[in-house]
C-alpha cells in the first residue's frame, strides 16, 4: 500500500464534500456534506500517522478530537437549522437573505 492512495481518496472525498456544500440548498444536506469533508480529513490524519509510525500516535488522537468536535458541530448546526425553520418555515439556505427586518 502506498501513502498516495490514501491521500488521493481523502482528496476525492474532500472535493465531493466541497461540491455538496456549494450546491445543496437544504441546510441539513449542507451539514451532511461538511461531514463528508471531515471524514476526508480523518482519512488523511490516520494514514499519515501510520505512514510516519509516530510513537505517540498524534494523528489518531487528532482524528479523535475531530470526531468529537464534528459531533458538537452537528448538534449546534441542527439546533440552528431548527431555530431558523421555526421562524421562517423553511430550511432552504437561499431564503436566508434577510439580515434584519
Amino acid at each position: 500500500m502506498t501513502i498516495v492512495q490514501f491521500v488521493l481518496l481523502g482528496a476525492a472525498l474532500f472535493s465531493i464534500g466541497l461540491y455538496g456544500v456549494l450546491t445543496r440548498r437544504n441546510a441539513v444536506l449542507v451539514l451532511a456534506s461538511v461531514e463528508v469533508m471531515l471524514a476526508a480529513v480523518n482519512v488523511n490524519l490516520v494514514a499519515f500517522d501510520v505512514y510516519l509510525g509516530d510513537a505517540s500516535s498524534a494523528g489518531q488522537i487528532m482524528a479523535l478530537f475531530i470526531i468529537a468536535l464534528a459531533a458538537a458541530e452537528v448538534g449546534i448546526g441542527i439546533a440552528i437549522v431548527l431555530m431558523i425553520f421555526r421562524n421562517r418555515r423553511s430550511a432552504d439556505v437561499d431564503e436566508l437573505d434577510v439580515m434584519r427586518y
Binding site: M1, T2, I3, V4, F6, V7, L8, A11, A47, V50, Y51, G53
Partner: peptide
C-alpha cells in the same frame, strides 16, 4: 501529493 510522495509505501 504525487509530486512530493511518488509511490512511497505505507508500512
Amino acid at each position: 501529493v504525487i509530486v512530493s510522495f511518488g509511490a512511497e509505501a505505507v508500512p
